[in-house]
Amino acid sequence: MLQSIRSLRQDIAYAVATRGGVYWPLAGRTLERLEQLIVRPVRLNIFGEANTGKSSLVNFLLRQTVIPAGDFASQGTFLRICHAKETVLSSIAADGTRNRLTSKALSRISEPEILLPSDGEALNGKLTHDGRVLELGVPHEFLRRVEIIEARNYPEVRSSRALAQVFRPADMTIWCTLATQAWKETERTVWSHIPLAQRKNAFLFVTYRDAIRNRKDEAKIIARLKNDGEHAFADVLMVSVRDAHEAKLARESEQDAAMAERLHKRSNAEAIEEAVSSAVTFAQLQKLRKSASVLKRVASIVRKADANHFMGPGQHIAQKLERVAGETLLIVDRAETR
């Protein structure tokens, strides 16, 4: 699809150069943005209060301990994890400028005093950054498809400008809540403040499944959370992301196989993978659906651009655009019936 779009864009670029006017450039810009949309990975937001297993979830998804989980993970900071050729940590200031941080900073990423800059003030001469956003680049294939944003919420966060910058609409969201204290009013409040569009493709992960001592209790908790229907999660899962991650590491290093198996079973790891992959698929399909509608729109713009030229390229390009849109929708439909 991307290739067809690129070639269409060349056609349009030629038309822009030779014909001018208002519509051709508009069509060109729209297609350019569409290309960016298609190229960029889907965005996964991981929300939750402190110490609810968000970092462990990231580690699990990336199959390596990229973020050392700490007991006092800091609040009010955002960590964007995206693909890079090598592991690199940068801080992003409010104006968008990026500063590369040292590898030493990486090892201290979970220490709150580093990540809690009080309005840009230097903290004890330690590493500081003036934004509330850290960006971690990791060479991992998963990140080519999915960009992760880990956010530690607290009530003030929802008004912060940094938040608005970072939280461009997410394609999917996972909210982590503690099994032993699941879904408090403060969590519900923050959730209700996230725009509805971002809450669509969302899962509630009830973490620390290992702390719930029998399956009957687990069912009761899940029943309560599902009953509170207004927050509309696609599903509510009880999981132990830390166990899942450790089981995975243990399996890969072929250590104590029995322990790995036990942790794996307790962690509900398969459900996690399934939920994430279905969310990614759903997000990708959404993106395709959106692309199809953008293509149709561009087609109508192109028709308008060429309305007075009987022999112009407009009709031909529009037809091509519509065909690509149709093919895209077909892919979506086929995937959905599967």
Binding site: E49, A50, N51, T52, F72, Q75, Y154, P155, L178, T180, Q181, K184, E185, T186, Y208
Partner: peptide, 10 residues
Amino acid sequence: LTAQQPLSQS
């Protein structure tokens, strides 16, 4: 309090 989230905002 709970040791999992010692002294939260709430």
